[in-house]
Nucleic acid binder design. Structure first.
Length: 565
DNA sequence: GAGTTTGAAACT
DNA sequence: CAGTTTCAAACTC
């Protein structure tokens, strides 16, 4: 076009813009009276401090709450009545993130990426006179200030024309100046963004209409506003939905390793719980039912929208096949939302504390036991008749039988192992459980045969057992959470899956599972779990009450998960 | 920095 | 309301 390019005020006024430089000031114009601003200047009036005591209704309503640098003195617009939960984010320039390959654009003073107060963007309008929504400043309700625009009318000097333009736009669209992003009730945009995680708050009221950008470039208003595309959008080939690998790769970049690691960990955990973690990724946040049909005839493949419209599991293979990328199933553990890094840290802290307490308790107990057993040790030594001196030594010092308690029967299967029997009992609990049935109830083989230095190793073994027990309990809790989630998932799938599918994958099996030591457990066991690795749940009921935590330790075959971990 | 691409806004 | 044009930002080279 270039109709007004370089023409200054010779630009033919549009029909909707009667430019009269009367002195009528807009309500938010404040006191600019002493400002002499040359027409067509690109600079906003540099004024004295604008009075904030402006109460009349401003014509422009968008970004009053937007952080404006101290140099932006143009229009501290009083906030108009706005619906709650609106982000005052200028769509075009949230200035939140830039695509990795984008060049750094000219940045205004205070325009930072670190969440510090930002200066509003400086427009570069040439043909719109900054009186149309093309102009970012105008659209955001601010005067141009220090912009690079040409033939700017978006200043106090042309406020009448500006107001006219505003009115025209409002006549056309009363919501033209309202924020386009409805925020969620949860605030806190920047904190998550700092770590590279996309902020998914809010929703674009109108939605974007992108066709080629995949909604992963700043052309897209949703992407620019750092939100996911929603059902309001009418975009094609959208990749700005939760679960999109393109989007995740864009956002997570260097964090991908950590994410992969956590997924791996969660996969291991969930693998011990059930298999529903696979393909159970929460579907894309966006649910575009209508767009599923809307795009049927477009270049957008149906699978794309299918993946987006499917609120359930949406393996990325669907979308990736659409995107031409490698088909890859995104694993999402059922525990993905349960286990947080802080939980892991907390667990470590707990275990450390438990270890310390165990050491202390064991020391005290050991001293007491030594006094008690010193008398009878000689008798026991004679009764053993065993050629292993270490056992004798252990019996004399630690009275292993007492400390190990009844659970040692489960350790019978650890014959000949070089590890601490208690540790082995923990590590191989399930096999021990199976072996226990055939083993003699009395534990013919004492599990202390491989403790070369007896007392000290025994001490550590005891301590280790306590720690591992605690760890196991924590794992059980995690597993319980996963099972609970799985149960919910299963029930929801009951209605969705085919009967055959349901029969195979969903139907839980309630077993009355005999366990050694005369303890049986009622275990709600998903059929996909192997019978050798039943997962104890909080709902598991032990028919034989036990008083010893150690007993329970060896009865609960939950430690196959620990191996996975 | 120039040219191109993109999608919202404006217009018909 | 759909299609087209205009526009300025985003992006590429």
């Amino acid at each position: 076009m270039g109709e007004g390019e370089g023409e200054g005020d010779k630009l033919p006024p549009k029909k909707d813009e009667v430019i009269t430089q009367d002195s009528m000031k807009s309500a938010r114009q404040l006191d600019f009276t002493h400002v002499v601003h040359p027409p067509h200047s690109n600079q906003a009036p540099v004024t004295s401090i604008p009075s904030p005591a402006v109460t009349a209704t401003p014509p422009i309503t968008t970004s009053q709450a937007r952080p404006v640098s101290t140099t932006t003195v143009a229009t501290p617009i009083p906030p108009p009545p706005q619906p709650q939960g609106l982000l005052h984010v200028p769509i075009r320039h949230p200035e939140r993130f830039e695509s990795p390959n984008s060049k750094p654009r000219p940045v205004g003073v205070g325009e930072t990426r670190d969440g510090t107060p930002q200066k509003k963007k400086q427009c570069n309008c040439k043909h719109s006179r900054c009186l149309k929504l093309y102009c970012e400043c105008f659209a955001s309700g601010t005067y141009c200030d220090g912009c690079n625009c040409v033939n700017c009318f978006n200043n106090v000097e042309f406020d009448t024309a500006r107001r006219e333009a505003v009115q025209t736009i409002l006549d056309r669209n009363p919501n033209a100046f309202k924020p386009k992003i409805a925020s969620s009730p949860h605030g806190g945009r920047d904190s998550r963004e700092e770590v590279g995680e996309p902020v998914m708050l809010g929703k674009h009221y109108k939605g974007c209409h992108c066709k080629k950008s995949g909604c992963l470039k700043k052309y897209c208003e949703c992407f620019q506003a750092n939100i996911l595309c929603s059902e309001n959008c009418k975009c094609l080939d959208c990749k700005n939905f939760e679960g999109s690998e393109d989007r995740q790769s864009l956002f997570h970049g260097e964090h991908s390793h950590n994410v992969a690691y956590l997924q791996h960990v969660n996969a291991a955990i969930t693998g011990a719980i059930g298999s529903y973690g696979f393909a159970s990724a929460p579907g894309p946040k966006r649910k575009k039912g209508q767009e599923f049909f809307y795009n049927q005839g477009t270049k957008d493949s149906p699978t794309h929208r299918l993946g987006q419209a499917n609120t359930g599991r949406t393996p990325s293979s669907e979308t990736d096949s659409r995107a031409g990328g490698p088909s890859k199933v995104v694993y999402r553990s059922l525990l993905a939302d349960i286990i947080q890094p802080k939980n892991v840290k907390a667990l470590c802290s707990v275990l450390v504390a438990v270890a310390g307490e165990a050491a202390k308790a064991l020391t005290e107990k050991r001293l007491a036991d030594q006094k008690e057993t010193s008398v009878s040790s000689s008798v026991q030594d004679q009764g053993q008749g065993n050629n292993k001196g270490t056992e004798i030594e252990i019996a004399a010092t630690g009275n292993q039988a007492e400390k190990s308690g009844p659970e040692d029967s489960s350790s019978d299967g650890s014959k000949g192992r070089s590890l601490s029997p208690d540790t082995l009992a923990l590590m191989c609990d399930e096999r021990d459980t199976m072996l226990m049935v055939a083993a003699s109830p009395k534990g013919s083989v004492e599990p202390t045969s491989q403790l070369p230095n007896g007392g000290q190793d025994q001490f550590y073994a005891e301590q280790e057992k306590v720690v591992l027990t605690k760890f196991r309990d924590c794992l059980n809790q995690i597993i319980s959470c996963g099972e609970l989630k799985e149960s919910n998932f299963s029930s929801s799938r009951m209605n969705l899956d085919t009967p055959a599918h349901t029969a195979v994958k969903v139907q839980p099996v309630v077993q009355q599972r005999p366990v050694a030591n005369g303890v049986s457990q009622t275990i709600k066991q998903p059929s996909q779990l192997t019978t050798t690795t039943p997962t104890p749940t909080p709902t598991a009921t032990t028919t034989t009450p036990t008083t010893s935590a150690q007993t329970q330790l060896h009865k609960t075959p939950a430690l196959s998960e620990k191996k996975d971990l």
